[in-house]
Amino acid sequence: MIPGSFDYVRPSSLDEAVSALRDAGDEGKVIAGGQSLLPLLRLRLAFPEVLIDVASVPELHGVRDEGSSLLVGAMTTHYDVLRDPLIREHAPLVAAATSTVADPAVRHRGTFGGSLAHADPAGDLPAVVLAMDGVFVTSSREIPAAEFFADYLTSTLEPDEVLVGVRLPKAFAGWGFHYEKFHRTAQAWAIVGVACLVDRSGGEVAGARIGLTNMGSTPVRASAVEAAVRGGAADREAFRAAAASAAEGTSPPSDLHGSSDYRRHLATVLTARALSAAAGV
């Protein structure tokens, strides 16, 4: 199919991008890699009047070491994320989840910031950033991950706000990590995904972070499981027991690929598996 008409601007600085967005009012839309947006435009499910292409905004590019955290530029492609030595060293969970995003050609174009700003709870990255307590750095403020995802395909970004990057703490660098993605075919979205970080100290779990993909209209933390494993034994039995509460407080969707009940069930099984894989047991 063919997109409807729109105007196109390609600002070369963050200020220009913000003012272009402001000029467009409610009818502007930022395009980064366009890998989520273009299919929506082609199916005529979205009709922006102006596309603001942020590809040439230098502030949005690159991964920077900020000491205790990394700032991942919003325009960093999935491909670049996967090859970035800082991410590999300090945020390997991000790389693990990114490697499951779509396919190589889409990863060449699709961006870290774009897929997060798209706020699709079935996307693989939101749960990861939530689990890591990432911070969304925008043209005007900083938004903690827990406050960024508002609803299905809706973030708390204002219409004239540009996502510059995401700050990821290095605190999890030494933790075990795993992204468990459950989908029907290689191309299908996750029915459920589990992003998991485990801090092991000997045979015990010192801490855990768990983000769930596609278990609600936003990514959700499995806080009850995190609490249940903390201080407990790092073994499969304990993980299975703790993971029984993985779906607590979630309201997963029912769709073509899985019912709400089934997703709840999967969350418990996959969370146990993700914990075991992250803990290396």
Binding site: P39, L43, T185, A186, Q187, A188, L256
Partner: peptide, 29 residues
């Protein structure tokens, strides 16, 4: 056997109109 099905909703709308919903196997499947 495993993947494909054209699904209609209760109003008779086809819900598997794209390849994102009508699942075809890729090489790794």
């Amino acid at each position: 056997a495993l993947y494909e099905e054209a699904v209609y909703d209760a109003d008779g709308n086809l819900t598997t109109t794209t390849m994102a919903d009508y699942l075809l196997p890729a090489a790794s499947d």
